[in-house]
Design a protein around this nucleic acid. Structure first.
Lengths: 225, 225
DNA sequence: TTGGGCGTTTCTGTATACAGAGGGCTGTTC
DNA sequence: GAACAGCCCTCTGTATACAGAAACGCCCAA
């Protein structure tokens, strides 16, 4: 694997995990030394992160980890809802039903995954990611996948701002179960509707949380737009 | 402006305009000499083009201009339709009506723009781009804008494969007029419906054209997905 | 004649060196 | 004491030099 790929993955993970919190200045020499590479591959990694909107080139100040705020989630969901609904429709039309039946079983057993042990609820979110991946594969649309990947990066990042509680996670599991069942039944309309319901509730839950201490005041969002 | 930005813009324009047709190998030394820069900024430009899907890193063979085919337009419109419809809805909710009234007037007069003089119909497509820009501005959503920009790049590129004829362009102007009017009236449902009608007809027109001589057989599409 | 192996050559990926610009600090002056 | 100007320093952006890998071609052998 190339050094620039490793640097990209490492920085991306660190930003998503809030090891590099918003506002952090990523000086090229400092980061290249930290990662044990030269500036050339590091610059490539930073360029990729910039196009993704995870960092922004602050002219004169270097590259800065972008701020993320709950206020912008409404905008993000305005894009996410139609894309995810369309993906669910396409998946319901074309999917291997066995795959989604198995996923449905998984979500039925999700309450066992949602334990108090892991505050990040990795096991449950891994199952959610599995469903997303299965929908992507069934929809089989490279353009759709690329658009969704962009959005998901920012969504994973905002999780830290939200307050997951077992009640909401159990409700979420039920919604995902509904989506998986609809796709397994080959019902596109139902799959899209279930997706819309789930995303609506997710957004409401996100917005209902009071701003976390990490939430910074609204600033330039950093998308190169 | 940075050398890497100029290289990116130059290569992007050349690919979109088919000066660099699909399958062209972009060797780093060759292109850097052609553009009068060194390999470092050129590599940055190629990386950006790769993430956009305009070129693909062919391992061992260098970077190659990706193939584009009408077959993939169905996939592209599967993403474009929900996004454009949502954008039209948002614009209809928030737009400065005067702007879209003026655009509507422009589309009413579009038949005068659609002349036989310019085979590429630049004047008409500039008006269409103006409407797109106005919708983007009214929708005021950075995530939406970024997703649409990706798609539009590929759409402009495929125009060369389609056969524009005055009949279709006049029909298209009427559809755009309907969209602009609906937004100017502040009617989100109508705006989305008009957008859906227009995109449906656009796709049908694209697919009705027999494959142009430039159309290559289906290959790896090159999106890094 | 064809297939396989080796050498050459060119290419990518990385490191480093260099130049220009911008900011911060310090000294001086009002 | 405060404000402005000049200098220095650090940082980005670019060029170039170097190393490893892969592909092409040629030669030899079967």
């Amino acid at each position: 694997m190339r050094a620039s790929d490793r640097a990209y993955a490492s920085l991306r993970d660190d930003i998503i995990a809030w090891h590099l919190p918003p506002g952090t200045v990523l000086a090229e020499v400092e980061q290249s030394q930290r990662l044990g590479i030269s500036r050339t591959p590091l610059r490539e990694a930073l360029a990729r992160l910039t196009t993704e909107g995870l960092v922004a080139a602050h002219p004169g100040r270097g590259v800065v980890v972008t701020h993320i705020s709950l206020e912008r989630m409404t905008d993000l969901f305005d894009v996410r809802i139609p894309l995810d609904c369309r993906a669910a429709e396409l998946a319901a039309q074309a999917a291997d039903r066995k795959v989604f039946q198995d996923l449905a079983t998984g979500f039925q057993e999700a309450p066992q995954l949602i334990t108090g042990e892991d505050p990040e609820q990795r096991a449950y979110y891994a199952l959610v990611a599995e469903l997303d991946t299965a929908i992507d594969a069934a929809a089989n649309n490279a353009y759709l996948l690329q658009a969704q990947r962009q959005l998901r990066t920012h969504l994973v990042r905002v999780r830290r701002l939200a307050k997951d509680n077992p009640v909401r996670l159990l409700q979420s599991a039920g919604e995902h179960l509904q989506i998986a069942c609809a796709i397994a039944q080959g019902n596109p309309d139902l799959a899209a509707a279930a997706t819309r319901v789930h995303l609506h509730n997710s957004l409401q839950h996100l917005l209902s949380a009071e701003p976390a201490p990490n939430s910074e005041p609204t600033q330039h969002h950093g998308l190169t737009a």
